[in-house]
Design a protein around this nucleic acid. Structure first.
Length: 492
RNA sequence: GGGUUGGUAGCUCAACGGUAGAGCAGUUGCCUUUUAAGCAAUUGGUUCUGGGUUCGAAUCCCAGCCAGCCCA
């Protein structure tokens, strides 16, 4: 009465659904089964004692990633958080029926748990000789190709789980990022910094010059902005007597998406009372050298774009912004030139200058396009022009510049730091004088807090994503963010 | 936002304007220490979408969608 027997052998989804249905019909539903692993894969392998096959029994679980059946015996590999471990299935150990289930019902991608003793194969691989196995999740969709992995960029980002299963480098980058953040926390906690969490939703998006995302709070019936920095909140905590404070927080900026920009990214901001920008220099150098040593096991990293090795252990160069500009333009009197002269000189360097730009914006275009990309080794660029940041203290000798630095590594801005402005009147004036693209919204509540007295402090921001790009040699910020922002697409 | 490259089987990729193929995966056999296991046979396509040109379009043209890269 029906034409059921259609050939589904070409449709892997249908084949796998049929296998699941058969299992359920036979009384075993994988999605109702469970397993209690005793070890992760690498930990299990570490238990093997040289020359003592079958001495240690373990239960491990993971996803089937290779499947090699050879008649009555089979080698497969499963993969867990720590990586792969090989399993050895034998008909004469499992019995005819269970071995048949193993061969017929399991597919690449299935999640299984197995119990068995460790031994070493002829070729020297520590392997579990399986006494019993349980299917605990049936994969109804096939894995990507086993050798080439998944390379379609769109699918890598949209289905990151597949990328993590089949591309070991992606998994390694994820693990490295986790260790980076973990080290930063331990480092700062070791110096008595206190970690806090401040609001993402703000009535005024301050602390940086950037376009914010806007959202709406229904109950209060007001628009809120997603924060573009954590700076002004953390400084309120300095006022409140938290002398060493940091936040590792998600920041949102409603701007372009590129190899170096994701609309949401992670920033460490750290503030230390009774310190200043020079104190932050020592702090970041210590943080990054210990970070490299611990996470990478070396203080030298390869920088593919320049072909250089970046050496974190050496002396870090310190050079003022003005000196870099004078050198790059070959003009010792650059800062007393007229706007017309600056424009002409910048255009001669091949830069496009908009007529509306302020003079400092012309100069800064030279810095960001012609100078910053060449600063490969760790470089503290100090004393930026006062227009570039309203939240720092002016330099005592040269009030046209700030007591700040911008740490640049691999041609990328990694960490800006300031001697923080704590004079409420000077702060208000700085806010009001802001011009051009650097204009920030004025946060009146913040100024009120300053009037209550904020201790002198050094403060610093560190872009975690960019730091991870540097440490992993990634080509794009999307390689260090698990789920980068993409245009939504209808799932199939 | 502009320029540019790409979108073909589950995945990785081929295919002068002339019957859309391979490897892996799948299916069926054989195979009890394999390492991208092997051997034999074999299934599988709305060529991103919509128009157009043409006797004939994966291929050429236009528009759109999505992604990568470069630029702003």
């Amino acid at each position: 009465m029906s034409d059921i027997p259609t050939d589904i052998s070409h449709d892997q989804h249908a084949v796998r659904r049929q296998k699941l249905a058969d299992l359920r019909a036979g009384g075993s539903d994988p999605f109702r089964a469970s397993v209690a692993p005793t070890h992760f894969s690498a930990d299990a392998k570490a238990l093997y004692v040289e020359g003592q096959d079958n001495a240690v029994t373990v239960t491990v679980a993971g996803r089937l990633v290779t499947f090699r059946v050879q008649g009555g015996s089979s080698f497969v590999k499963i993969q867990d958080q720590q990586g792969p471990i090989q399993l050895y299935f034998r008909r004469d150990v499992l019995g005819e029926e269970r071995y048949g289930v193993f061969k017929k019902s399991l597919d690449l991608g299935d999640i299984i748990g197995v119990t068995g003793a460790l031994f070493k194969t002829k070729t020297g691989e520590i392997t579990v000789r399986v006494d019993a196995f349980t299917l605990v999740a049936k994969a109804l969709r096939p894995l990507p190709e086993k050798w080439h992995g998944l390379s379609d960029a769109e699918q890598v980002y949209r289905q990151r789980y597949l990328d993590l299963i089949v591309n070991a480098e992606s998994r390694a980058r994820l693990l490295l990022r986790s260790r980076v953040v973990s080290h930063i926390r331990r480092f700062l906690e070791g110096r008595q910094f206190i970690e806090v969490e401040t609001p993402v939703l703000e009535a005024t998006a301050g602390g940086a010059a950037a376009r914010p995302f806007v959202t709406h709070h229904n109950a209060l019936n007001v628009d809120f902005f997603l924060r573009i920095a954590t700076e002004l909140r953390l400084k309120r905590l300095l006022v409140g007597g938290i002398d060493r404070v940091f936040e590792i927080g998600r920041i949102f900026r409603n701007e372009g998406v590129s190899r170096k920009h994701n609309p949401e990214f992670t920033m460490l901001e750290v503030y230390q009372a009774y310190s200043d920008y020079r104190g932050m220099m020592a702090l970041i150098k210590d943080l990054l050298t210990t970070l490299c040593a611990e996470v990478l096991g070396t203080t030298k990293i390869k920088h593919a774009a320049s072909g250089q090795d970046i050496d974190f252990a050496g002396e870090w160069r310190e050079v003022s912004y003005k000196e870099l500009i004078r050198t790059a333009t070959g003009d010792a009197e650059w800062f007393s030139r007229s706007k017309a002269e600056k424009t002409a000189a910048a255009e001669k360097l091949g830069l496009a200058i908009a007529p509306a730009w302020e003079e400092f914006e012309i100069t800064n275009e030279i810095f960001s396009k012609k100078i910053e990309p060449t600063l490969i080794q760790p470089t503290f660029v100090t004393h930026l022009p006062k227009e570039l940041c309203p939240l720092a203290k002016l330099n005592a000798e040269d009030p046209t510049v700030l007591d700040v630095f911008e740490l640049t590594i691999g041609g990328m801005e990694i960490a800006p730091a300031y001697s923080e402005q704590n004079d409420p009147d000077a702060q208000r004036e700085m806010f009001e004088q802001q011009a051009g693209e650097e204009k920030q919204n004025i946060d009146q509540d913040f100024l009120l807090a300053l009037e209550h007295g904020m201790p002198p402090a050094g403060g610093m921001g560190v872009g975690i994503d960019r730091l991870c790009i540097l440490l992993t040699g990634a080509e794009s910020i999307r390689d260090v963010i698990l789920f980068p922002q993409l245009r939504p697409s209808d799932a199939k």
